[in-house]
Design a protein around this nucleic acid. Structure first.
Lengths: 148, 148
DNA sequence: CTACATGGTCAAGCAGCTTGACCATTCCCG
DNA sequence: CGGGAATGGTCAAGCTGCTTGACCATGTAG
């Protein structure tokens, strides 16, 4: 594999990732959820299972906990999440999605499915599944960096 | 393909793209090119073929031309590029890479190849080529958005 | 030649992140 | 236990990279 091929792979990967992010964001806006940015989606992904603390979010997003705290302020103010006392640790607060937050997360899933469906039209479903399998094997476990 | 699979694919794709960006950046720093951010790499990719104007860069990066102009200021000040008069249009300036700029671009290629090589170790070279082929077929032609 | 379009820069403002300081609670160990 | 260190969280100030708006120089069309 030559260097130029590696660069082509990198460029294609980044272009596809960027377009996917944009399409999910557009789809979420189209479904009536405004005032959010892609980074909020990454936060929702971490909040969805059962809530998370501000520090958890900060690690997941690769930012300081102050930045994560501001981000939580924002989604709380806009009605997508709320801070509840943390059971078992009076220092911490558990940030959980509201019903509107869940609706937004479902909208993001639908938008992602729409985008992936267009790939299925181009590649065939089998190839898309192969793509998923390959990516899962090389995906890291680290934080999802929202901006570069 | 269910919504949850689409989300898994999206998350994996974004995680891989983010890690790749990080690894290329780290590799470039390791090779002695400092004071750069990933967005500069996207700019280099557009400058490399034979130079570009500020407006070209702005479109390619999806930012205003003022922002692109500042970015050019930066890489010029750091010795990676220079502004030359544009042949055939006295309004425009052609931004071209310096020798140091070319060296940095080669370093980025090497770093990208290193990262891709680790995927080859995991997947096998054939699978990596398949990945490249699939991505090329779904990659858009639009601007590469440096930050979300 | 005039009128508008295009390439580029200057200036000011803003949003999102950082560093630094601080308080409350919990953990660990003598 | 008790008391210092570690952890979760917020407040405040500052910086950086981007935006909008204004402007000048050059090109293009009538």
């Amino acid at each position: 594999m030559h260097n130029s091929e590696a660069m082509a792979l990198s460029a294609a990967l980044l272009a596809v990732a960027g377009e996917l992010t944009q399409r999910i964001h557009d789809g979420v806006v189209d479904r009536g959820f405004e005032g959010l940015r892609p980074v909020h989606g990454f936060a929702f992904a971490r909040l969805a299972p059962g809530g998370a603390t501000v520090t958890d979010l900060a690690v997941h997003l690769g930012v300081t906990k102050q930045a994560a705290s501001q981000l939580v302020d924002e989604i709380v103010r806009k009605g997508y999440a709320e801070r509840r006392p943390h059971p078992g640790d009076a220092r911490a607060r558990l940030v959980v999605l509201t019903e509107r937050g869940w609706a937004c997360a479902r909208a993001a899933e639908e938008a992602a499915a729409d985008a992936v469906r267009t790939w299925g039209d181009l590649l065939g479903e089998g190839e898309v599944r192969a793509l998923l399998a390959q990516l899962l094997r090389i995906a890291p476990n680290g934080p999802i960096r929202p901006s570069w």
